[in-house]
């Protein structure tokens, strides 16, 4: 195969599979779920929190810390709240 054929085959397979990865859309479909973060694994926190932000939660399930979850998920999680 020459270079041109290699390119055609490779991009052809990409088009055929219709691979779609849509990362930017995800951010818009997320919600901030408070009260469910594991210590050190929060995405961020409310302004009332005693620490700065991501990964700094000092205890599990702090009501001031949140994890970003897909919209509609937070209400299904025990202890999860959309507001701090």
């Amino acid at each position: 195969m020459n270079n041109r054929q290699i390119l055609s085959a490779a991009i052809g397979s990409l088009l055929a599979l219709g691979v779609v990865s849509n990362a930017s859309a995800a951010g818009k479909n997320m919600e901030q779920c408070y009260g469910i973060a594991k210590e050190g694994h929060n995405d961020c926190s409310s302004k009332k929190s005693s620490h700065s932000c991501a990964g700094q939660a000092t205890k599990d399930r702090d009501a001031e810390d949140f994890v970003a979850v897909p919209k509609g998920t937070c209400a299904k999680i025990a202890g999860g709240h959309l507001k701090s």
């Binding site: 041109r4 390119l7 088009l15 691979v19 779609v20 849509n22 930017s24």
Partner: peptide, 20 residues
Amino acid sequence: DDAASLDIDKLAQIPPEQYP
């Protein structure tokens, strides 16, 4: 920053002779 992902539909409109 957020950025769009590769638009496969847009790629499909490129004629193969322009792939290189």
